[in-house]
Amino acid sequence: MKIRLWKDRWIRRAFFALLILTLSVIAFIGIGLTIKALPLLEDQSLFSILTQSIWSPLKGKFGFLPFIMGTVWVTVIALAIAVPLCIMASLYLVEYASDRLRNTVLPLMNVLAAIPPVLYGVWGVLFVVPLIADYIAPFFGSSTSGYSVLSGGIVLAVMIFPIMISIMVEVLQTIPAELKSASLSLGATKWETIQKVIIKKARPGLLAAVVLAISRAFGETIAVLMVCGNIPQVPKSLFDAGYPIPALIANNFGEMMSIPRYDAALMFAALLLLVIIFGFNLISRVILNKLEEKV
């Protein structure tokens, strides 16, 4: 008996230690990145780093604006495509679709979620880029190689479909049936009920899903890198090439050691990503947890 209790106690301690160890990794990453990024702030202020648009590591100029704008463009395009589609599709799945359809489509979303980023990138290069270069851009009267923020946005939109659909469906399923019945029994059509009751009630949850998707989009590296063109400029139109922050880190790690301050600049980029994504994730998770507790 003693041995069993003794074993139990030590296992508890060991498991607790593992938990703390794993969670401290996040603090460790944050602190490590900050220490590494600090040298960059010695001769430039935070404000000028974030708003300057000249990126010339050899001259010691690190303006992050092109990369921030690249990320913003790609993310906004992706959201503009994905948010309406996902809201409509999840509404259909929850309100109209039969159980059978729902049980077919939702596992397919898991497949979409499981496809690795590099395959999205291959798809982007083989399909989206030529589509834009040969059809979409000429249609709007401009010419482009196809490697543009629009390609990045489209690929990214498809990548955030699964996370949005799965969370939105879950959120919509938590809407109480009484609310819907009350609206329907007053003579509203289903679409009116959706507009005036369901969407209103589900708004925080839908918002959380979108925020989570944004943070996913911010950090996506390889798929976007493959289709975005990677020219350090502030994109001015949909068909311009862009250079998102994660692509910057991935592309330049090899050479950063030879140029002073370069590593600090890249670490600053990583820190920027970490802080933004951590914040966004935290917000949306807190909202979602609250919703879950209510049910």
């Binding site: 490590g32 950090g219 996506e220 880190i249 994504i277």
Partner: peptide, 17 residues
């Protein structure tokens, strides 16, 4: 909550550090 958040941290950040 933290594990949920960690789940969302992109691999490039882990790679960089």
């Amino acid at each position: 909550l933290l594990f949920d958040v960690l789940f969302g941290i992109p691999s490039i950040v882990y790679g960089a550090i």
